[in-house]
Every structure is written in C-alpha cells, then in structure tokens.
Design a protein around this nucleic acid. Structure first.
Lengths: 351, 351
DNA sequence: TTTTTTTACGCAATCGTTCCCGGTAACGTT
DNA sequence: AACGTTACCGGGAACGATTGCGTAAAAAAA
C-alpha cells in the first residue's frame, strides 16, 4: 500500500527540463528565467508537487523533527507543556515525536535510543523519577545533540533548562498552610534525587524555619514512582497517620501525588481540610470541582513548553556551537481554595 | 550544530571493503563469508553504528512513522488513547507524530497536509467537531494512504474504524437516570454532525422511548466546539434552566461537556444531584473525587488506541490493497456514583 | 588438466533533492 | 574581430543505504 508522490523528476520530464533547473526554479534561483520559473511553478502547483522531506533530510542531514520525553502524557502538566512545545515546533516546520518513560529509567533509555536513532534534531526532556545516571545524556550532548531540560532537570549537564521557581512555590504553599493555622505540616515528595524534589523540599523547609517551626524529617515521605503507583501514596499517607503526633496538613509535591493523597484521605474518611489540610503542585483544571476544592501551586506549563522549544530551536539552528546556556525560571502561582482553609477560620473570616 | 553519525562507508573504508559487502554483512547475507561478517559486525558494534533511518526511508519509500490527529491531548480520553497507540507503534518500530486540531476544521486540514507532506505511512484520527467535509480524507484514501478512524468516525469513508457502542452507552446512562426517578432528562450534546453525537443521541432517545417518556427536542442542546469553549456549555445549561418545566437531569455527551456542566451547575449553586442530576461520557480518573462524584460512561480508551494501531499497521504492511474493512465496536462501562442518585433515594435504599 | 560450480566480493543504479561545475548562447566592449 | 559578461540551463556527484548483476578466485567435478 502506498501512495506515490510527485517528484521533481516528473516535472522535469513533463516540461523537458533538467531536474537541476526545476529544483532551482522551485527555489526561486536567480539563474532561472522568469518564464521558466513561471512554467515550473504553475505545473508544480497543478500536479500538487511537494518536496519529499525525507530526501531533504538526507541531503541536509537534519530531520526537522524534535523528540520529547516525559513520564506520561495523560498528566495535565505534561500535556499542557506538550501543547506549548507543539505550537512553537509546528510554526517552525518541525515535527514533534513524543515518548513516555512512565517513570522508568529503562524505558527512558530505550526511548532515548529510539529517538536518536531516528535522527531527531534535538530533544526536550523531563527526567523520570528513577533517573540517577546521566552519562547517556552527557554523551549525547558531547556528540552534539541539542537538549533542553524542563521541570525535572539535571545540574551536571550544561545546556538550556526551563523550570518554575520550585523553591518559592513550595515556600509559598507551606507559608500559606502555616498562616492558616497548621503547624504539623508533612510533605509527600517525589523521588529523592529529582531536582524538583530537592528544590521543593528546600522551599518547604525554609518556610518552616522562617516561621520557627522545627523541621522534622519524620514528616517527610518520598514516593519513588512519583505517585504513578497509588499504593506508594497510600503507604506514605498511612505511615504519616501512624505518627503519635499526627500531622495536620500535607504538602504534596506533584500532580499525581496531590490527587493521590486526596484519594487516599477520602477513602479513609479523613476530612479535608479539618482533620488534614492538603496543598500540592497540580495543573488539572478540575481542581476547583474536587471535594474539597484543592489549593494548588500551578505551573505555567504551556509557556514552559513554548520557551523550551524556542530555546531548542535556537540550539538546532545555531551556526556555531553554543556555549552560553541559560536556565529560565518562571513563576508559579498559588491558587487558594478550600483544602487548606479550616472551616472555623473561614467562619471567623466571614464574621 | 550536529551530531555526526557513523555510516556504512566509514566501516567500509576502515575495513578495506566495499559498502555493499558491509551492508550485506550487517544484514547477514549468505554471500558473505563468516569471517568477514564477524569482522564487520564487531567493528560496527565497536564504533556504535546504527543504520540511518532517513536513508532507509528514502530507499524503501516509507517513513516508519504514523500520524495521529485528535482535538487535544490534554483530555483524558485522548491521552489514554494515545498511550495505546504509542505502545503498539513503538513495539513495531514506528514513530508516532501527534497533532491537535483543537476542534477546528482548518487546523485539522493544516495538520493533515503537514503530516502527509512529511510522508507518514498511515494516519489515525478522531475528527474535529467542525468537520463536515470529508473530501480530503476521501482523496487521501484513494491515493492509498492507510487511515483508521476512531471515536469520531465517518460513515462515508470505507476503512477500519474503532468506536465504543455509543448507542448502548447513552442508552444505559439514560435508563439509569430514569430508573433513579428522573423524568425530564436533558442532554448537552456535542456538535450535531459528529458520529458520536448522532449515536449517543439515538441511545438517549431510545431509552426515553422504551420507558414511555416523550422525547422532547427542547431538551437537547448542541455545543459546536465540544465544550472547548466553556461559554457555550454555559449557554446550553442556562437555556435549559430557563425552560418552564425545568429538566431534572442532564446527560452530557463528552468529557469536556460533562465536567463543563458540573462547573456551570456548581457556579450557579445548583445542587447535584438533587436539583439536577448529571451523567456523562468521561474518562478522567478524577471523577470519583469530584463534588459530587460523577456517574460516568467510561470508554476503554487505551484499548481503542491499541486496536486502531494494530489495524493501521495491518493496512500499512499489507502487500496488496485491502478492501475488506471492519468497524470494531467496544463496550463502554457505566460507573454509577452520586451525581445521578437522589439523596432521598439513597436514604431509602439504606433503610 | 580442463571445465564447471561455488564462494565472496565489488560496481553501479536507485530513492528525491540540492548544488558545484561546466557549457552555450547573446550581447556589449574595446 | 576578439574577448569579457551575463543570463540561463544541464550534467553529475553527493546524502546513506540496499540490491541486481557481474566476476575473480577457489573449489569441485569432469
């Protein structure tokens, strides 16, 4: 089954010209007479000629496609980011090839090999929770593959990066909980080695410290699969609930973790926010429809995708090797809803 | 900036062989001596040779990539479908190139042209709400491009299709509402011309008829952008509320419409399900965490993606033109939660 | 020993496109 | 008249890989 396309040869033959002339006419070269150009252009239009991108790729040694690896696309933050990536890429004539690591280092590596062997011109990636070994990325950058990291980045590799101010996001969220009367604030964090985990944890701790609340390692839980597996969130919440001095609030570190915590708390009939407040990073637009409506830190996902792609295209299209890299840090947004506001406080506020 | 790869020529030169010999050795041809094979294979391994897929594509006149067009990926149903598509595609060495129509016919066409000009081997698509003109698809199938439709399909084009039993899904949902005591059941449907709209509407009407409830055109609302624009959902709900004999339940026809209706109802402080019940097609896994937990018809999205891709690969890899097409119809699942069960009934049931 | 067969490899065309070289008119300069 | 310009166009070699065909040497058969 296929789907024969018109080539430059067909035009040449039909018009009694050489392929070189046709090619030049189509590219509007000065050495082709206006009449010939017109002839070629009109005929090409008529038979619906489109240059074969594969032949072009071979000739120009570039595929005009970029690879994207995220842990999963069925996740609001990432699907919104991909929207941003796509919009810029398509406007510049690039394909986007998407792959999912599903939080597995092995799959990430497989995808990486698959994409590079399919000769992508560049890569945009947010690491999997399992990724601790960056040697493959180092090798790729050394071999000259343009890479832009976003969200879950890696310090050791010198290239463009796009993130939000995770520290501030976490700091704000935690401060918000504190100022709403919560004191024993636990956190359900992502895998320990992730950049976002470290930064968000630092923000959380700093907020506690600034409010003279002792920070307490026993209130920190890590989810090594980033909440992909609900049972690990359940374990985390359960173990928090077993502490003698139970926490009265949870700060969750990612989309999946935030909704995961809510799911577990509800299944255990623990009232949010009265028994346990909940704040987390999340980008779904269903947050306000949840029971209770969730207070979240929202990331400008679409914009992050746009910026990452713009940076990547700069790298790809740069004539000489780029050595001056930047890390764009965007602001996140704290959206306060009911999951972090005690009902008695609300009553007080109304009075 | 690029990223030079090892070619077959490099191997040939290094080993003092011709490229043909190297090629054959790599493909394990019988006309190459075991020693030479070993030599080539080991050297290729050593310098990390990978065949250039672009050169192969040019030679074999296939790109080993398939295009996917959906209205948007930040939508649970579609992102789950894409997961299914990806899993099959990658296992078979195919790339997946994703494009979004955002419910616009114009964008759909643009994407279509972009993808075909990038020589995809096949296409999987769910139509935009605006699409009423199928001539372009007809032309593509006639020119031999393998296409598989899913979800929003089109009758007039003879090819493989994958859907759920929309009639039964809608019938079950409506019947469920009726048996729970609702009588004036409105529906907020998708764009009128969509296959899913027609089928779901038919199921809805059949359920009413079977329960001897007069079907009433004034209780039907269409959203031409499939709920992409919240205001159209708002208009639909508002106009339903203005009817003298207000409906007591809404059956919503898609993910975005279902959550959109809930959003509007809540903003108007209309209690669900007591003042107004709500049931709809939806695939988010947040449904049970909503207020109230939503009764939904869930589609086996991942499986749909898998099946669509399997069918597409069959078409692509078939030696002779396929003329025998099938439409796979999968079962949907009605998941009953609180948005469709009156509280008094619940109390009664408990008693 | 001669002929035939087998083995093992190279040449060159091919896929669609671009682009470096040439080449040939026509025209203008001296 | 001889030469230089300019305008216009074609030949053919890439890009990386596969593959039909041809063929030398070695092995087998006569």
């Amino acid at each position: 089954m296929k789907f024969e396309a018109v080539t430059i040869k067909d035009i040449a033959k039909a018009l009694g010209l050489s392929t070189s002339t046709v090619s030049r006419a189509l590219r509007d070269s000065y050495e082709i007479s206006p009449e010939t150009k017109k002839l070629v252009l009109e005929y090409a239009e008529k038979i619906n000629y489109h240059p074969n991108p594969i032949a072009l790729s071979l000739k120009e040694r570039r595929s005009r496609s970029i690879g994207v690896i995220v842990c999963e696309i069925a996740n609001s933050f990432f699907s919104q980011t991909i929207n941003g990536i796509e919009s810029i890429a398509y406007n510049n004539g690039y394909n986007v090839i998407i792959a999912q690591s599903r939080e597995s280092f092995e799959r990430e590596l497989m995808n990486l090999q698959f994409l590079t062997s399919r000769s992508i011109d560049g890569l945009i990636i947010s690491l999997s929770t399992e990724t601790e070994d960056f040697s493959y990325f180092k090798e790729l950058t050394q071999r000259g593959l343009p890479i832009v990291f976003f969200d879950r980045i890696v310090d050791e590799i010198n290239t463009h990066k796009v993130i939000v101010d995770n520290f501030k996001g976490a700091y704000d969220a935690t401060s918000h909980l504190i100022s709403n009367g919560y004191r024993r604030i636990a956190t359900v964090a992502n895998a320990e080695f992730l950049s976002i985990t470290k930064e968000r944890l630092a923000g959380y701790k700093a907020a506690l410290k600034d409010h003279r609340i002792p920070d307490n390692e026993s209130l920190i839980r890590y989810c090594h699969h980033g909440g992909m597996i609900l049972s690990e969130v359940e374990d985390a919440v359960n173990s928090l609930l077993k502490i003698k001095q139970k926490p009265d609030a949870i700060f969750a570190s990612s989309d999946k973790l935030t909704t995961g915590c809510l799911r577990i708390l509800k299944s255990k009939k623990i009232s949010v926010p009265d028994e346990m407040a909940l704040v987390g990073f999340s980008n779904t637009d269903l947050n306000e429809l949840l029971e209770p409506p969730l207070t979240v830190i929202r990331q400008p996902a679409f914009e992050m995708g746009e910026i990452a792609t713009t940076l990547l295209l700069q790298l790809i299209e740069s004539k000489r090797p780029v050595t001056d890299f930047e890390t764009k840090v965007l602001a996140s947004q704290l959206i306060i809803r009911q999951s972090s506001v005690k009902k008695k406080m609300k009553a007080k506020a109304l009075a």
